[in-house]
Design a protein around this nucleic acid. Sequence first.
DNA 1: GTTTTTTGTGCAAACGTTTGTATTTTTGTA
DNA 2: TACAAAAATACAAACGTTTGCACAAAAAAC
Lengths: 338, 338
Amino acid sequence: MGITPSTVSRALAGNERVSSKTRAEVLRVATGMGYQPNILAASLRKGTSDTVGMIVPRINRHFFSHVISGVEAILNPAGFSLLISQTHEREEDEHKAVHTLLRNRVSAIIVSHSVETRNFDHYDKIVSEGIPLVQFDRVTETIAGPRIVNDNFLGALRSTRHLIRNNCRRIAHFAGSLHVNVYRERFEGYKYALQQNGIDFDSGLLVENCILQETGGDAAEELYRAGKIDAIFAASDFSALGALRRLKRMGVAIPEEIKISGFANEPFAALVDPGLTSVEQNAFEMGNQVARAIINNIGRDDFVNEEIHVPVRLIPRSSSLTTGATISIQNSEFNSNL
Amino acid sequence: MGITPSTVSRALAGNERVSSKTRAEVLRVATGMGYQPNILAASLRKGTSDTVGMIVPRINRHFFSHVISGVEAILNPAGFSLLISQTHEREEDEHKAVHTLLRNRVSAIIVSHSVETRNFDHYDKIVSEGIPLVQFDRVTETIAGPRIVNDNFLGALRSTRHLIRNNCRRIAHFAGSLHVNVYRERFEGYKYALQQNGIDFDSGLLVENCILQETGGDAAEELYRAGKIDAIFAASDFSALGALRRLKRMGVAIPEEIKISGFANEPFAALVDPGLTSVEQNAFEMGNQVARAIINNIGRDDFVNEEIHVPVRLIPRSSSLTTGATISIQNSEFNSNL
DNA sequence: GTTTTTTGTGCAAACGTTTGTATTTTTGTA
DNA sequence: TACAAAAATACAAACGTTTGCACAAAAAAC
């Protein structure tokens, strides 16, 4: 009978230098008594846990919950558990979360920064301790390691170009905080599309920090009344929605008078009337990529320092189409060149 | 200098039998060297961790992600971390998740069962080991301990009554699986409302397992063509949405010809045209209650065996209102009596 | 039949805390 | 100054694994 802890440990840890007879016996007894190994003890001894920490601004946002789900789909079958913290977009909470995860001796950390966060020093300790750190969506190049991001630039470029092709010239852009890579890249894509089509960028048509329904509505009303625009490209579906509803309520014909497109393809985009053109991000797929990056980097000391772009897709809907145009829902112009 | 681990431990664990001088010194040195206590070691020694496990069907569903957020909002400040698993509605995954959490020596478990799950034996070990188990939303009385649920019965009753008051008599009910408490209770509320108003329940108007957009559309089309209904009360906003869109596409006037109400007040309910009447569940508040139940039950051996009902609210919108009626959005007929 | 190799187990230390008990130091009192 | 009581600290065991090393038994080689 396998008596000593060492033999039991070896038997349960799969093949090693233990005879098949004793292994069978150990397994029999173990399952018989409903034995559950104490992961804490094992982790303590091994110096590493099978837990991965994840820090997101908010768990209950459509995008983030889908990324989490994508991460989980890969990491769980691989034997990892997920320890999740939300920062509520506060820098202080982000710092706290990092410390909590470190205290829990997670073997890797996944993070999407809060919009507030400017100081990334607290991540130095993670990297210096050899813990893989994977950033996604809201990332900074300040920190070494893999970054998984949407192709914001290309999405914005395509969306803006789509509006231009539908005969818009005076296209407003509702941006987020330009401190955040995500919104900066969308802004760049917008500008690039204008430039490609010989349209001068007009800073009067740029509205910063405009990602909520209300601010979107306000900005749209103001710009429309001033007669400045014939289209809006919003970096957020929410501000696009605000614009759409406000203008509609004001009696503005959409898309005839003003065309609108958003970003993220929130579930409501397909349901509003008229349907809201948007850029689909594959959040679940992004989560998968994040998880794969984690697995690739755990246990090694030289982290790959790459930025992976997850393809996005323009989904044209009625809110941006020239009246009478056919809607090609299957426009799947994936990440080709520009 | 506080040298021995014991003094350090006591110093950091707040007041005890250690002089204020040494405590200060210990703290100084500890912060100076960026000391992070090893929670694994502490948990191993103490026999309990500050981690709570949570099992949900899907992380990325609006309702569940909001419950998670609500749990986290209370548990994190209280010093607990959340270990989350999703079951993808599969019984096998639920069993696995339970074992993973047990191996991780979580100090409590929160669960909402998958629709598939019929066998709850694997929870016996949890309860017998004295680990608090809190169920929410999808619960079973088979397992002892707190259950936090929506007031499905009352929500369904009010919703159905609302349709009746708007002159509907032949009200179909799109239900989920009646094996699941949630859908069973909604069905009961529906029947009770009919009975209260002298309407006979017609089993031909009950559609089981109808909670998706597509099945909702199909059922609605069939019932409408057969001329059997003047209203639909769906146990899910998704099947309600399916019905609404399908009928609208068929040229049926909503609410004039057919009135529709759903359940859950998904974000899209307010945005579709016409607005979809629904029953709002306060998922975040439910999460708070779950967290409080956890905190109340951790460390005690006699678990309170109660069922807490979280109030729901009927939100009437155009899809169910007699034409010309005023919409009282502020109908906040909270959990009073029937 | 002896020696060498291979294979399978046991021993004991280690991971970093916590905590009961023993020991030292300090304080107070006679 | 001596002695008890109180306060502060040290000692050591324990939590449940893993793992290098030693050792025994079996198998292979001579």
